[in-house]
Design a protein around this nucleic acid. Sequence first.
DNA 1: ACAATAGATAAGCACAGACTTATCTGTCGC
DNA 2: GCGACAGATAAGTCTGTGCTTATCTATTGT
Lengths: 104, 104
Amino acid sequence: MNETDIFRALADPTRRLLLERLSAGARNATELREGLAVSQPAISQHIAVLRGVGLIAEQKTGRHVTYRVDPDGMRPLVDWLTRYRAFWPSRVDKLKTLLKEMDQ
Amino acid sequence: MNETDIFRALADPTRRLLLERLSAGARNATELREGLAVSQPAISQHIAVLRGVGLIAEQKTGRHVTYRVDPDGMRPLVDWLTRYRAFWPSRVDKLKTLLKEMDQ
DNA sequence: ACAATAGATAAGCACAGACTTATCTGTCGC
DNA sequence: GCGACAGATAAGTCTGTGCTTATCTATTGT
């Protein structure tokens, strides 16, 4: 998945909120929508975007669809971050070490 | 600086390219533009966005303006990442440790 | 079988944003 | 002072995207 699409997906506050909710545990679209002043199709479209960039995954059981965070989805973003040593003067090496550990 | 603005700023490939160039060393707007098939005002506008969200800083000396990466500009993005344990099953603690080290 | 439910898709609208050309501002060398 | 240069701003265009309502699809319980 390319960085542009991931950054774009995360640039929307509603989508970040959905991710926030999913990061607390898997749930379905109706539950994701609870309390939000946005229509059902809007949620469905947001979910499609998040799924399209690999940030979430769906699990179908009958008519019920459960969404969960894809743990690897955020990796391109982290990889991108590590390419910018200048942002992390003298600290990026620690980050690189961390990422190596994550690979295992 | 709020997360939405930073994600939005980073969602544009041209702006990420400019950051990439600046991360290799400070330079002025004309140098940043080199080789890009985009007008001078476009570069100027991109720079304004990056500066607005705190990702880069300018340094004026007479009529010459030099831009450089702001090392702290990316911090909100990293902070946001750490809030999503689910993305980093069992790894986020290491990331949090790293961030503590960065604070020192 | 059929009504209800969950979610996706279609179509249209409105606004945001990335781009352009033209122009303005400010600083330097001469 | 004045022309050259670096960069910012103005104004307009075009596309992308987030939203809506309406509708479709698929699965379930009764």
